[in-house]
Design a protein around this nucleic acid. Structure first.
Lengths: 185, 185
DNA sequence: CATCGATATGTACACTCGTACGCATGGGAT
DNA sequence: ATCCCATGCGTACGAGTGTACATATCGATG
């Protein structure tokens, strides 16, 4: 039974939590379900995460980090010649092209902040992180709006079960940018 | 005598469900909790709504209807001289000015469609309904984008616990409209 | 008036859940 | 070598849950 002293157990529980939420949704997340998924006893999950909220926070945070990496890797948002709208629309496309489960997972965790105040700081971090990535190329107002519109577009697709339309996204994201510099008129 | 043959029981259960979700969130919705809130026995809720999903669909639908009324009442979206962006920004402001619980409730029900396929048709109906209200004044693409951006702005506020900024909303909604007619360049 | 089906009600079952708690263990500090 | 305590583990308890079902009641239909 050499599972004594497992220094990565904390991390493995979080990974398991992500898989559980991906498969069964937040509603299906329990100390027991992640314990089973991580192949650790029940007492272990309650020890590392006293409360479910604590586990959720860790899970959301890790999920965010994964996304941030994709964002940083794929996007060349420092190149002044890049077409930001095209880049963002493409990014969304990639996102949707991958397993939809991943996107659902990210958004489910993100949206859970609506009812769980404990998650709000993490959600805010994510918002701000994405905004900051955009900042080198736009003003804060435009960046915020871009994030909001991307969220709205994604939700429209996910909630209604429709298809992602990259041309449409490119079009409307571009409109936000068109007047990003000369506000005030 | 008093509770036998209650023709409005169906409706009263839905009303109670709305109150329960408003107070405790969807996670707190159960046959028993709505039964208690509606002051009817447990068997009554299971009779009128065989499954919880069925009850959720009815609840979301009713919630949508309430919003549609506000929309139709306040908005003069047929007036060709009206400033749509201003009108929408004002509407959002009113929405946020009212009890935040109401907004949270609407969005929680709306977002629940992410994990509950049974709710998706209703979510889609709502999207389309709002889009159609906007249609007399814009093309379909712009209307969809306006809805998406409104959702995104609202979520940004609700999820991060921030404040609604009407001037900001007016600004960015206006950008979507600015090029609503002359797409193609 | 007699009957029937829709509606209403109470109860019971099997299950999952969060949490608490006692005990075992072994690494690192002393 | 010894002690301490963070970590790991199993179990038990009470609370809630969805659902099924047998029974009671009433409006309508013939």
């Amino acid at each position: 039974m050499p599972r004594r002293y497992d220094p990565e157990r904390h991390q493995r529980i979080i990974d398991a939590a992500i898989r559980v939420v991906g498969a069964k949704g937040i509603a299906g997340l329990s100390h027991r379900s992640v314990a089973a998924e991580a192949d650790v006893p029940l007492g272990s999950t309650t020890y590392h995460f006293k409360t479910l909220d604590e586990l959720l926070v860790a899970t959301l945070r890790q999920s965010n980090e994964g996304f941030a990496k994709v964002m940083a890797a794929g996007g060349a948002f420092e190149d002044p010649d890049a077409d930001i709208a095209a880049e963002l629309a493409r990014l969304l496309g990639e996102w949707f092209a991958g397993e939809r489960a991943g996107l659902e997972l990210e958004y489910e965790l993100y949206l859970a902040a609506l009812r769980r105040p404990a998650l709000r700081p993490v959600a805010a971090e994510w918002c701000q992180g994405l905004t900051e990535v955009l900042m080198p190329r736009t003003d804060p107002v435009t960046a915020r709006a871009l994030v909001a519109l991307m969220d709205g577009i994604s939700l429209e697709v996910l909630l209604t079960g429709g298809e992602y339309d990259e041309a449409y996204a490119y079009d409307v994201l571009g409109r936000l940018l068109a007047r990003g510099g000369d506000r005030g008129a």
